[in-house]
Design a protein around this nucleic acid. Structure first.
Lengths: 222, 222
DNA sequence: CCGTGTGAAATCGTTCACAGCC
DNA sequence: GGCTGTGAACGATTTCACACGG
């Protein structure tokens, strides 16, 4: 008994280092690649080599969440993919509400990679009256004052901010007010959010600055 | 003597933790914001509070690179901005070559945030004959077989990959061959690069997965 | 008196190295 | 024989706490 489909989680997920979770995404991406290539099994050392990590690191990362490998053999790619998706929470579909249908927003509306991993943008908002009340890539664009209602009615858990920096905090506040519990922020500002809302920020200029620093200081890849 | 404009760098820049450099970008962004608001001085604790870091962390991070503060007062915003830009290397203009003028590529061509921080995309490439030999946002689009020549002639140091995943490694190889020393990769694949080339990867689906994990595990903001 | 800069301590994350199992 | 899972050692980063200077 007590040995069902679910592996026991050896630790509290909140105590897992952030770096581990971000490597998990990379493992997932690589495993899906391997599966497409017809490979059924990987060892920690192969997976590590492909990504530039050590084999010990790969094993340790996975061991945070359970026993997924087979001694002497390695990991079954399909099983490990399922397991990682379960850990990340991407084994179900997540709906996303986007604000800001500018250059970047439009690109994200058409980005296939989101759907492929289980994310679906179901509503977008923009302050420009010329953009609202139509669909782009099949996604309806609403005026900003519909934000609360749409998010609430569809119980959308994730917000994506691609608005100008000056509007971002206000947009975030409205999203949180409407019940969003996670925000992906592309606006180049720091957002202040209540503790129960998760935040991931992506600042494109900042990423280039990181690159710039390592180029200017010849630090090799990342 | 020996007290010129340049502060001495207390340590080898290559030995600075990566996390420190990424916070440097955030300090910079916040300082520029403060300057726009007319503030001339910040303390480590104010800067930390704005970004969610401790005051000790801010001071330690900055101390890797020199003595920028004044005891009893704090840091002069304008001086610190100049200092951080000098450290990151964004006190000069960097030219960038982009490959892949799809959804995302077009958005990046029009992204104002790059110019604002000193990056200028000066050439783009795409395999679609319908897109080449014209300009978008003032940037010329070339066919892929011009890549080597254009990058070499203009001595472009930075490559930006926004091509489909399947093409990314080949594109990267050609960029490296042409002399690029840093690559910002938006394609969802792991690139293999020679050691003298720096790499920063941004995978949009991966970022959403991180968010998803922390939402699913209620870990609060990042 | 306030806030920086920094040794020293504490914490966190990675790597080693090997027992255990297929 | 090969490869996982994991205590223990190690190294890196963060936090503490206080001396020093404006």
């Amino acid at each position: 008994m007590n040995v069902g489909k679910r592996k026991p989680a050896p630790v509290d997920p909140a105590s897992v280092p952030k770096a581990v979770v971000s490597r998990l995404s990379l493992y997932l991406r690589e495993l899906q690649q391997l599966l497409r290539g017809g490979q059924t099994t990987v060892s920690s050392s192969q997976l590590g080599r492909l990504l530039g990590f050590t084999d010990a690191q790969v094993r340790r990362d996975l061991a945070y969440f359970g026993h997924f490998g087979q001694r002497g053999v390695g990991y079954r790619c399909d099983e490990l993919v399922r397991a990682i998706r379960g850990i990340l929470g991407t084994d179900r579909e997540w709906t996303v509400a986007m604000v800001g249908v500018g250059n970047l927003g439009r690109a994200l509306l058409g980005y296939r990679g989101f759907n492929a991993q289980g994310f679906r943008i179901v509503a977008a908002f923009d302050a420009d009256p010329g953009k609202v009340n139509r669909t782009i890539e099949g996604i309806p664009i609403f005026p900003p004052d519909h934000l609360g209602q749409v998010i609430r009615e569809q119980a959308i858990p994730i917000g994506l901010i691609a608005s100008p920096a000056a509007a971002a905090q206000q947009v975030a506040d409205q999203m949180v007010e409407a019940g969003v519990v996670g925000i992906l922020n592309f606006a180049p500002v720091t957002l202040a959010l209540p503790g129960h809302v998760s935040l991931v920020g992506v600042d494109l200029a900042t990423e280039l600055e990181q690159l710039c620093f390592s180029v200017a200081n010849r630090a090799g890849p990342r």
